[in-house]
Design a binder for these strands. Structure first.
Lengths: 235, 235
DNA sequence: CCGACAAATCTACCCGTGGTAACTTACTCC
DNA sequence: GGAGTAAGTTACCACGGGTAGATTTGTCGG
């Protein structure tokens, strides 16, 4: 099957699988018989399903199937599909969750920075830290799409973080008197940089995280303080 | 099915589908009967298969299936699988092809540049031009993987272009006396920038190509002439 | 108190896709 | 002429996303 899978790096927060024997298709639940359940509706709100999805992905890897996720949630597939939409919707929801997590970490790290460049370094460091802990989730979100809308899949995470970044960037450039129209493009560019470098690092991991942080910080730093237009014309 | 598909932008070089009625699974070939063919081996060398794959992808879209590609090549699936390996190998081969194409275009554009920054602009412009023409192929290569090795899939193109770029970059930084150890990281970063911005542009296409070229050139320009280490420490 | 309808769930299935085993035919060499 | 081999095609498998239909329980009117 997969290849990356577990490899317990730091493994924060949510502990691994409850138990659930997530054997994909051959679901082995308490085997409730079909039909309307005895005690009211089943207890599966969206948040629980998402948490279960995260648990499953964390333990199985980015190739976790919908069936496996349902099993981890102690629920059958139709319930899962009723709770979150299809797989794309699930990816979207998890992307949201991951972006929130990154934002939190990044925000916390940045406020206690002493200088702008130090702030950027904290940003990068916090970002890498979250990804390193949630690597399977990260891979699921960035490459887990089911088939069509290939473009949208790859951009799920990016879309959710590009606009805030672009806003910041535009504000800063407005203040500097430099052309702010590049903001959105540059935001996607920055995210692309982080994403690709991170992927490469997750796979080949030749640098340690400190080195990587330094390199990335240097690159983004010099990129961000871009001195307006290099050659001659504007947008 | 897909969503992006054709949209004939400029459509260079290879003309569209021969005809082939590429109906995916229900193959409708001249219906050669099974068994060893009458006149020697079948004529399907790797390069022809790759060309057929490109044709199929170009006309069907990035969701072209192996069966459809085989049909376009006037060949049955096992022949296709014998010629190229599995789908990952096909993606790899096409990635190589696309990288060559980009390199050619980029090289041609860059030599007639008058200044470094103009060279960079030519680089970006040529890159975008190739992608714009071969968008389906590009999407197939960057997101067409079959399932496992999600990381490798996304990096297929990147791996094939990062090292050359890194070499150039390291040489230049050595000449400048700036730290060359960042080269590989920065190379992946640049590619990530190009990739993500391109994806975003292919999907949302709000800027015209000239604007996008300007923005990207400005970003890469300021990023590349990075003044070594911004804060204090080295790698 | 009973029967019909509605609600909620699970099972079993469908479909498409990557990949291959098994069957079929033609050639070749003794 | 027949056994063995080379070359291809068909039919199939496995598996993952997604859903229709069977199945049971609760509810409400008569």
């Amino acid at each position: 099957m997969a290849k990356a899978t577990t490899k317990p790096t730091t493994q924060a927060t949510t502990q691994a699988t409850t138990q659930a024997t997530a054997q994909a298709s051959t679901v082995r639940l308490p085997r409730r018989s079909p039909g309307r359940p005895s005690g009211g509706r089943i207890i599966a709100d969206r948040s629980q399903l998402l948490a279960a999805a995260e648990r499953a992905i964390r333990s199985i890897g980015p190739d976790a199937t919908m069936a496996a996720i349902a099993a981890e949630a102690q629920v059958t597939k139709p319930i899962l599909y009723r709770g979150v939409g299809d797989k794309d919707a699930l990816v979207g929801a998890l992307a949201e969750l991951l972006v929130d997590r990154i934002n939190t970490a990044v925000g916390a790290a940045v406020v206690e920075a002493t200088s702008p460049s130090d702030g950027l370094r904290s940003f990068v460091s916090a970002y890498l830290s979250v990804i390193d802990d949630d690597r399977n989730l990260y891979l699921f979100v960035t490459a887990g799409g089911s088939s069509d809308d290939r473009v949208g899949q790859a951009l799920h995470l990016a879309d959710r973080s590009a606009h805030p970044i672009a806003t910041l960037l535009a504000a800063q450039r407005n203040a500097d008197g430099t052309d702010p129209s590049v903001a959105l493009t540059w935001a996607y560019g920055m995210i692309g940089t982080l994403h690709f470098v991170t992927l490469w690092w997750l796979r080949d991991g030749t640098l340690d995280r400190d080195q990587l942080t330094n390199h990335l910080t240097a690159l983004l730093w010099s990129g961000l303080r871009g001195d307006t237009r290099p050659q001659g014309e504007a947008s």
